[in-house]
Amino acid sequence: MGGRKRIAALEGFLLLVLGSFALAFFVETRELGQTAALFPRLVALASLAALALALGFQFFGAAKARQTPAETAALETLDVVSWPLALAVQVGYVALIALLGFSLASLLYLIGAPLQMRYRRWGVLIAYGFLLTAAVAIAFTVLFHVRLPEGLLWSYLKG
């Protein structure tokens, strides 16, 4: 194991997001009363300190002896679908629910997502999509009395 280790861009992004959250919370505590501010302030500081130490060790090689292979190796992947694309599809699904309502969005998603993952047995897909959507929609609305999202489009069209 070499002394210095580069941090991948994505890992840096993760740390940036979490670190900024801690920092933002720390800043926010200035506007809070004593009681409400005490713990967030302490914890935010401690977290940032832990982060700084962790980064320090990583850059200056002091943690050399402690590094395990697990820490450095990213997951091996076959890259069927790259993760940004997979993420985009999930986000798209949620957006679609807001737009088209749960049932229609789920149907499209259940048929579309496997296609994206190179699944090509159309018969299975169609049956799968329709059956699952119907089962879940009926179970939740009829049995569990959950009001599933109806979709902005319909309410817009309704006027």
Binding site: L18, A22, V43, A44, L51, A54, R66
Partner: peptide, 23 residues
Amino acid sequence: HGQVLKGLFLGGIGLLLSFIGRD
């Protein structure tokens, strides 16, 4: 193992998340 600091950092983030909302 070898991730004590990261564990503490994430634990801290978890605590901060739990502080969101009404005191």
